[in-house]
Amino acid sequence: MEKLTVETSARREMVKITSLVNGAVRRLGIGEGAVLVYSPHTTAGVLVQEGADPDVAHDLLLRLAELAPHKHPGDLHLEGNSDAHLQTALVGNAQVVPVVGGRLALGTWQQVFLAEFDGPRRRTVWVLPV
């Protein structure tokens, strides 16, 4: 297993981590198979999504904020980040990504993202062969 560190700079953002994960795949010596890319956080998720057009990440964050607005009047969680927990639940905190030829086997437009919903923070992402 390899642990990656990702610094986020905003409360909500999508950070491309594909190159970091590919580096972990190389260091782990995985030629063929798959890796689990996992966030051990309850307010940050991992997803595979289009990475060529930054408007896609913007639109995803916008829609997730509409589904789970910050400081909803019915929220009981005292930390004030119930929206971040719900957004992470919707996105998920892990992805299994195939590895072919020692690299992530992603589609033409796909990237691996850490989705930050309660930053800025220093986040950890685990990369494990599966």
Rank of each mutant, 00 (worst) to 15 (best):
N93P: 04
Q111C: 10
G119D: 04
F117I: 07
T108N: 08
V127N: 03
D118E: 05
V125M: 02
P120F: 09
W126K: 03
E116A: 13
L128K: 14
R103I: 04
R121Y: 05
F113S: 01
G92I: 00
V127S: 05
Q111H: 12
A94V: 00
R122V: 14
W109F: 15
T124K: 12
V112I: 15
V125W: 00
W109E: 01
E116M: 05
R123Q: 07
D118L: 05
A105L: 11
V100T: 13
G102Q: 13
R122G: 12
V112Y: 00
G102L: 13
W109C: 06
A94I: 00
L114F: 09
A94K: 06
F117R: 00
D118H: 05
W109H: 11
L114P: 02
G107I: 09
N93Q: 12
V130R: 09
T124L: 13
L128I: 14
R103V: 11
D118F: 07
G107K: 11
L128D: 06
A105T: 03
V96M: 08
V112A: 03
G92H: 03
R121K: 14
Q110W: 11
E116L: 09
A115T: 15
V112C: 01
L128N: 12
T124Y: 11
V99I: 05
R122M: 10
R103G: 04
G107P: 09
